[in-house]
């Protein structure tokens, strides 16, 4: 279970829509760790990642009524916002220059403190997604990861890898199609 007494996500959002900050805090407690980790993976600096998390939850606060459950659970929505804001920031600063500068920096700095242990369900989800990714052909996995975690466009990926743009586009499409099938087979829930 994700928590001992999980409140239905729709109730949390209702509270946010009613301008009850305790609803936002509950969503924050549930998602902030992953939102921060995702922003950190994309941006590589803790201060920027924390700013992205702030922006993310302020956006949840203002746009709670726009949540679309067809595109996944609240966690998915929050993480999608966090990733978008991180990528906005990355692109605004010039992705190419930035990645040259940080190419030798490790994924996470020594100041990071990891949550000691994830809830079991999160660990299972992670294992399933990683398993699905490993089943992709390496060239498809590479482009999917570059697009998702580095915020690179298909054209930028082609420039980075030296592959023709058409090849990159095909790999992204085939990789995502296969990943979608594999995740369904693995039973990864939408949130």
């Amino acid at each position: 279970m994700r928590s001992p007494n999980p409140e239905p996500p729709s109730d949390l959002l209702d509270r946010v829509i009613r301008r009850d900050s305790s609803g936002l805090k509950a969503i924050y407690d549930r998602c902030a760790g992953r939102a921060l980790a995702l922003a950190l993976r994309i941006l590589r600096t803790r201060s920027e990642a924390e700013e992205v998390v702030q922006e993310t939850f302020l956006e949840v606060w203002k746009r709670a009524h726009e949540y679309n459950p067809r595109r996944g659970g609240i966690d998915v929505w929050v993480l999608t916002i966090a990733r978008s804001r991180a990528i906005d920031r990355l692109r605004a600063e010039g992705a190419a220059a930035r990645f040259k500068a940080i190419a030798t920096v490790a994924d996470s700095g020594p100041e990071l403190s990891l949550v000691p242990r994830d809830p079991a369900e999160q660990q299972q989800d992670r294992a399933r997604v990683e398993s699905a990714l490993k089943q992709l052909p390496p060239e498809q996995r590479q482009v999917v990861e570059m697009a998702y975690y580095e915020g690179l466009s298909q054209r930028e990926i082609a420039l980075r890898t030296g592959d023709p743009l058409g090849t990159v586009k095909t790999r992204v499409r085939l990789g995502m199609e296969k990943l979608s099938r594999l995740l369904r087979d693995e039973g990864v829930p939408p949130s």
Binding site: G33, R34, L36, A37, L38, L40, R41, R71, G72, V76, L79, T80, R83, S108, L112, S113, L114, V115, D118, Q122, D125, R126, R128, V129, E130, L133, V144, E145, Y148, Y149, L179, L183, V188, P190
Partner: peptide
């Protein structure tokens, strides 16, 4: 969005 599951929470 499922790809976010691979990130270790911080």
């Amino acid at each position: 969005a499922a790809l976010s599951a691979t990130v270790q929470p911080t």
